[in-house]
Simulated assay, not measured.
Amino acid sequence: MKDIGAVPPLVTDMVLSLDDRFLYVSCWGTGELRQYDVSDPFNPKLTDIVKIGGIANPTAHPTGKQITGGPQMVELSRDGQRAYFTNSLYSSWDDQFYPDGIKGAMVKVDIKPQGGMELDPLFLIEFGDTRAHQIRLEGGDSSTDTFCYP
């Protein structure tokens, strides 16, 4: 892949915590998961950013393994303590931005109660040539589909 130097964030998902305190925004292009404190919705504040993958200046997982793609579909646990995301957007976009291919992966982020995040250094699921677009948490997550579960 050519070093292109800059790329737009390409926001692909947003998830609001069940307590309406934190908003999580996945930026597939830049390889960032952003956390905003939105407890005052008229004055949101960027709380933290974790980086992994990304098109320009890709960031490796804490294990040292390089991840292609970036944070894509985010699943936030109901208790707001964990976020999981996959790295494949859509095959046509994946192929355009990563002509050497994307290896499917899922990553876990630990959420700090007062705000802040960190990649779990022990959690990395690699799917090889199978691209992972989205996963579902058993029992639901913080998105609207959570209310479909008992």
Rank of each mutant, 00 (worst) to 15 (best):
M106E: 09
S77K: 10
Q134E: 09
L119Q: 00
K103I: 04
I102F: 05
N87K: 08
G69C: 06
E75V: 15
D129K: 09
E138K: 15
D79W: 05
K112F: 07
G115Q: 13
L137A: 10
D110V: 03
D95K: 14
A132K: 00
L122A: 13
Q66E: 15
I125W: 12
A132Q: 02
H133M: 05
Q66L: 12
A105F: 04
A105W: 04
A132S: 10
G70W: 02
L124T: 01
Q114D: 14
E75T: 12
Y90N: 12
P71H: 07
D95I: 03
H133D: 07
F127G: 10
Q96W: 12
L124G: 04
F97Y: 09
L89P: 02
Q81V: 02
I135C: 13
E126Q: 12
G80E: 08
E118L: 01
Y98W: 15
G80N: 07
V107I: 15
R131F: 07
F127Y: 11
Q72V: 08
D120L: 03
P71Q: 03
D100N: 15
E138G: 15
P99E: 08
D100W: 00
I67Q: 07
T68G: 11
T86N: 10
E75Q: 15
D95C: 13
G128H: 00
G80L: 09
R78Y: 01
T68V: 06
E75A: 13
T86M: 13
R131E: 14
A132T: 02
R131P: 01
D110P: 00
F97L: 14
W93C: 10
Q72K: 12
S91L: 15
L119N: 03
R136D: 14
T86C: 11
G80C: 13
L137C: 11
Q96V: 04
S77P: 01
Q96Y: 14
T86D: 06
Q72W: 12
S92E: 11
F127K: 08
I67N: 07
S77V: 03
A132W: 00
R78K: 11
S91Q: 14
D120R: 01
D110L: 11
P99Y: 13
Q96D: 11
N87G: 08
Q134D: 11
D110F: 02
K108T: 00
F97E: 09
W93K: 04
V109L: 03
S91W: 04
S91R: 12
M106L: 09
G104T: 01
G116H: 01
W93N: 12
R82S: 10
T68Q: 11
L137H: 08
E138I: 15
L76D: 04
P71Y: 05
M117P: 07
P71R: 06
P113S: 07
D79Y: 04
L137W: 07
R136K: 14
I67P: 05
D110G: 00
G101F: 13
I67E: 05
L89Q: 08
Y98H: 09
E75W: 06
F85Q: 02
W93H: 13
Q66T: 12
R78E: 01
F85M: 04
Y84G: 04
I67A: 08
L122W: 06
S92M: 09
P113Q: 04
Q96T: 08
A132I: 10
